[in-house]
Structures are given as structure tokens and as C-alpha cells.
Simulated scan of single mutants.
Amino acid sequence: MDTLLSLRVFAEVAEHKNFSAVAERLNISPAMTSKHVKHVEARVGARLLNRNSRNVSLTEAGAQYLQTIRPLLDGLMEAEAQLSTDSLSPRGTLKLSLPVWMSNPDFAAILTTYHQQNPHVTFDVDLSGRKINMVEEGVDLALRVAFKLDEGLIARKLAEVTFQMVAAPAFLDRFGRPQTPDDLNNAPMLAYSHVAADGRVKFGGENGMDVKLDPILKSSNESILHQAAIAGMGFAMLPNWAAQNDVKDGRLEAVLPTVEWPKLHIQAIYADRSYLPAKVRSFLDFLAGPDGVSAVLK
């Protein structure tokens, strides 16, 4: 049996979690697809996939093995493409995981500009905001403001994100307009669970102080926090660029605008590989360039 083909079949099944879909995609029978996976498992001496009539998932050994062979398979595909086209150009599907707040016209324009320059790259974008396993789910690149790195992942800083405290005018009419940060202690907060789940917010720079608000709504979905702030539910800490139009149009007010609120970095998270596929490397460079994320956040 062709071991290289078996490795490709295993990687496809691991990422798509469906034997039948992969069989159709590769134009082989479902039975042969299963034989290829069993061939790989026999070679490594370990079960790589858990499967039943409904679900397919990676075992711990399978996730580790996929992380090892995926860049090798990608490299081989690009080497073949280079020989056939005499140029190493980005191509294939780029699977991205983005924060919910990147579902906006500015980031859509980034994707559009990149695709115009790299027409052989297509996008598969997840905006669920959930915690992901990049290796098991076959995600090429994740953009995060706060992210605890799992083993085997690295982060590249793309741009600085400055935040501001905001609230709806009607809410401030009821609650009162804080004059100092201490006025925010125990105030109702709409808290982003990945950054300030306990309601604690640092101000005044690196050596600043904390205020402790009372989280009445916690979510990993930034959009619901934003909309709840506009509805008058409480205080929210939002990126400047995301809140600025609402502040300008009067739907939100900046609270204590002279206070130095937190600054965080948006990071690109990807697998720690000695070889990055051209589609990932080129998109990373584009995001870090003058037409990338920094242009949106300025």
C-alpha cells in the first residue's frame, strides 16, 4: 500500500472528521479510505482515530502525529507545485479562527485585498469565539487578543489594541458619571471572559492600579457585550476602534476618557513549524504589513 497516500488520507480524515466525505474528495471508496488509515495506524503502532457510526475524532497520539506530518505534507505539495509552475505561490484553503469582533467591513476588506493579490488562496473562517484545538481542527492561523499558548504553538504580535471604558448615555443618567476610577468599584460590568472575567481592570499603564467592577454579564462573544452596552446594561471595556463610531454618534459615551486604560496586542497564533506553507506565511506577512491589521486598528 502507498504509505504517502495513506498519510494524506489520514490527514484528510483527521481534519474533516468524515470518512465518506474524504473518500469522495479523493475519489476512492470509503472502504479503501478506512484501509489507508488502518495502514498508518499499523505502521506507528497506535490508534490515531476514534470512530463510530456518527463521529470521528483524533486520539491524543493522533493529534500529535497529525501535527508532525501536516507540515511535511504541505511542504511536499508546495514542492510539487513549484516544479509544475516554476514558482512557489500561495495556494489552497487557509483555515482561520478569528474573534467575533473581526466580523466587520474593515477586516472583510483585508481578506478581499489579500485574495485579489493571491487568487489561488481561499478562506475557511470560524468566528465562533470558542476555545479551539488548532492541531486537531486543522486551523492554520488564529487571531487573538488574549490567548494562552498550548504546547507546539507560537505567537506573532501584529498590532497594539487600545481599549476604553464605555457605557450608554441612558445608563450613565441612572448610574451617574464616574469622576475617578474609584467610582467604578462594584459598578455593573459587561466582562469579556478571556480578559476580565472577574471584573478586574487595570488602569494607569504597566505600574498602574486596579478597579474591581461587578460582572453582571460575562461572555467570550465580544459582540453581545458591545450590544448590551449600547442597550444600557452596564459598563464595557471595548477596543477604541470598535467603539469610536458609537461614541461619535451618541450611542455610547467614553467613561473617564483621560484615564490610560489597558493596551493589549492582537497576536497571530500558529503551529511551531520549521516550514510554514506559503499560504500561511504570505497571509501572516500581509497582516503585519501596511495594509493589514494595524491599518484597521489605527
Rank of each mutant, 00 (worst) to 15 (best):
N240C: 12
D150Y: 05
S53M: 05
L297E: 00
N207Y: 14
D214S: 11
A187F: 04
G250E: 09
E12K: 02
Q164N: 14
W101P: 08
N55D: 03
S220Y: 11
Q117M: 13
M209R: 15
H16G: 03
A23E: 03
V211C: 03
I154A: 04
Q67D: 08
T93P: 11
S84Y: 08
I230T: 09
P90S: 09
R130Q: 13
N50R: 11
S220P: 14
A278M: 05
H39R: 09
G208W: 10
F147V: 06
V22Y: 02
E78S: 09
L217S: 01
A231E: 13
S29V: 06
A42Q: 12
D198P: 04
N245R: 15
A278H: 01
V293K: 00
A167K: 07
K218Q: 08
A63Y: 00
A46C: 04
T59Q: 00
N118C: 06
F10T: 06
E206D: 08
D126W: 11
K95V: 15
K248V: 10
V201Y: 15
E24C: 15
E260F: 09
E15L: 12
L72H: 07
I230P: 04
R144A: 04
G92V: 15
V56T: 06
M134H: 04
R54G: 02
S274G: 00
P99R: 07
T112V: 12
D182R: 08
A81Q: 15
D140A: 02
G75F: 12
P119Q: 06
L284Q: 07
E136Q: 09
N18M: 07
E260D: 14
N27E: 15
A288S: 09
P262K: 02
E41N: 11
A271Y: 01
V22H: 03
E41C: 09
A46M: 05
P30L: 11
T112L: 14
E260A: 14
H115Y: 10
L98C: 09
E136C: 06
L276H: 06
E151I: 02
A155M: 05
S219G: 03
S223P: 05
Y65S: 03
R8K: 12
G289P: 03
F235L: 11
Y65G: 01
I266W: 00
M209N: 14
S87K: 15
S274A: 02
K212F: 05
P239E: 13
T33D: 03
A288F: 01
V135T: 05
M209H: 13
V255R: 13
K157D: 11
N27Y: 14
V166W: 04
D86K: 14
F147T: 05
S220V: 12
V259P: 10
V166I: 08
V211Y: 03
H226V: 09
V44S: 12
A14E: 12
A242C: 07
A278K: 03
D291G: 00
E151N: 06
